[in-house]
Write a protein that binds this DNA or RNA. Structure first.
Lengths: 329, 329
DNA sequence: CTGAAAGCGCTTACAG
DNA sequence: CTGAAAGCGCTTACAG
């Protein structure tokens, strides 16, 4: 590889001077600048970012830790992050935990060793160990999707969103509303959304049968399984079901249609997530569109501010969501 | 930041020894090793990857250049890449051209400056300038999605795939088949798929009306527009339409349904891509599932081999595709 | 306007 | 088994 030393020799100047024209800093005579530029052009020299970071302590790289790489949520989030980061000359270094929560800590350390200028974690939990690791980190850090005391985060009002959706269902006249959730270790999606639903039901004095409460995973098949459990075990069949993700909702939809139920005629379905699928499936799914791109953009903006040292204290940014009413309820 | 020097001092050994225990190389007495490990543990020391790469010339980072970050194709591709790379301790540094072809070269240089161990480009064109830039690159490089003379690539048989689909349509009895393509600058998706369709038609002596040939972009709305053009301008209305991407096909579907045509009754539709949407839309879309995850895995495998210097010559790997017949034809 | 030299945090022959 | 020293490719006070 060709280095600054060679450029300096060829242009008949010192490395210092080459560095100056590279970084547009300090004084360089027009003549020297031209010679250097010329040699760079003709050699195709590209300065080593590593050597540079070693000195400057800046890498222009932001580490992004994702729970899963090929989900629409991650994709939209990363898109938003890259949207603002690219403009500032930063790049994204990806880390994918593949839903193994313990890898979050591992990757935080790896990214630290890679001297990233900041990290953004799309979190699925807020375990003490993880929070601890982040707290002792000296690198700017943004948590997305989960709220944690003392950490700067970009979140949605998960509780309110689920509650809004439950209320919409109730307003529409549905009284027997089932619920498909996920593990409550995921505080945002598992716990808070469930609580929103539960509170809405209670507030309207609507009973909830235990068999109406199912817990699935983050995929379509799981939604079908949950719906089956509900329909097969419920004393009183529900008139509607609220699923905490669109995929779960779509799975439920599949089950119902395959078993001769009409949606929303026999059972209404609402999802959450605002996925593209929700729009094109038949019947189109009523859902909540969380602006993941905005969340990504906001996270990127915050990390940039932190890098510039513009704010010290923790900040909690809430991103808006939109209730999208369609044909499934 | 805490460095190897401090660890050495605290453990009362030299930096050399610390380095040895860090890398598990050379001889270190049990006693020294223990002291070092202990200090590392208690300080939470993480060695600087930058400093290390500066010496070793390896970064364990692969640059991945994508035409768009939030498409299902990219998402699946990156998933496949990460799948094999993560296991080998490599991370992905993302670069998103956002469909600006000229940024491909720019990012190749940027990634070069970042000393990545290899690059994978999900290409949308094979312009001379780009190919030139890649050729003079001394870093292992894999091209995905486009074939280029002398470059190692992972591709699909785009021509055959489009031809297969057209033949299926013909076999089903459709004779008047329209086509929605994209710009032929994209040789794989634009040119080759069109050629596959055209050749199939010719082979079966089926005439193609000029108005049946439309060119769109990579989104759903564009598919609608193309379908409108076809239906409004065709002398002879087609009985079927082959779109080169699922999104274009879905746009066409939308247009037809909104204008009172039944699918496949009045017009049959086939897409290409094997997107998740194709499966859940009504009617379910007949499409070609390109295994983008496999393409990603294969690209990662190849780049790993190149890094290890296991093969010099260029290789062209063809990834299988699967014709998925569903209800839209 | 220019350059010599120190230093960033590592690894690695080399010598002991 | 261990360490002193050189070197990776840059930048940056400092001196001129």
């Amino acid at each position: 590889m060709i280095t600054i030393k060679e450029i300096a020799e060829r242009a008949n100047v010192s490395r210092t001077t080459v560095s100056r024209v590279l970084n547009n800093s300090g004084y360089v005579s027009e003549d020297a600048r031209k010679r250097v530029l010329h040699v760079i052009e003709e050699t195709g020299y590209v300065p080593s970012a590593h050597a540079k970071s070693l000195r400057t302590k800046k890498t222009k790289v932001i580490g992004v830790i994702l729970p899963k790489i090929s989900t629409e949520t991650s994709s939209r989030l990363v898109n938003g992050i890259d949207d603002v980061l690219a403009g500032e000359g930063y790049q994204i270094l990806l880390a994918n935990t593949n839903l193994h929560a313990e890898k979050e800590i591992e990757y935080i350390r790896l990214l630290k060793s890679r001297n990233v200028d900041g990290m953004i974690l799309s979190a699925t939990n807020v375990q003490q160990e993880l929070i601890q690791e982040i707290r002792q980190l000296k690198i700017p850090f943004i948590m997305v999707g989960q709220y944690a005391e003392e950490l700067t985060s970009v979140i949605f009002d998960e509780y309110q969103a689920a509650r809004d959706m439950a209320c919409l269902l109730i307003k529409k006249g549905y009284k027997k509303i089932a619920f498909i959730g996920v593990d409550e270790a995921d505080r945002a999606v598992g716990y808070l959304r469930k609580k929103g639903y539960l509170d809405a039901m209670k507030e309207h004095q609507l009973p909830v049968e235990a068999s109406w409460l199912q817990k699935g995973m983050f995929d379509i098949d799981s939604g079908s399984d949950c719906m089956r459990s509900i329909m097969e075990s419920a004393e009183d069949k529900p008139q509607a079901v609220l699923a905490v993700t669109d995929r779960l909702a779509i799975g439920a939809l599949q089950y119902l249609r395959q078993n001769g139920f009409s949606v929303p005629g026999d059972v209404a379905i609402a999802g959450m997530g605002g996925s593209e699928l929700s729009k094109y499936i038949t019947p189109a799914l009523t859902t909540i569109d969380f602006s993941f791109e905005d969340a990504g953009r906001e996270a990127a903006l915050l990390i940039l501010q932190k890098i510039k040292g513009e704010h010290e204290q923790k900040i909690n940014r809430k991103i808006r969501y939109r209730l999208v009413e369609r044909e499934s309820i």
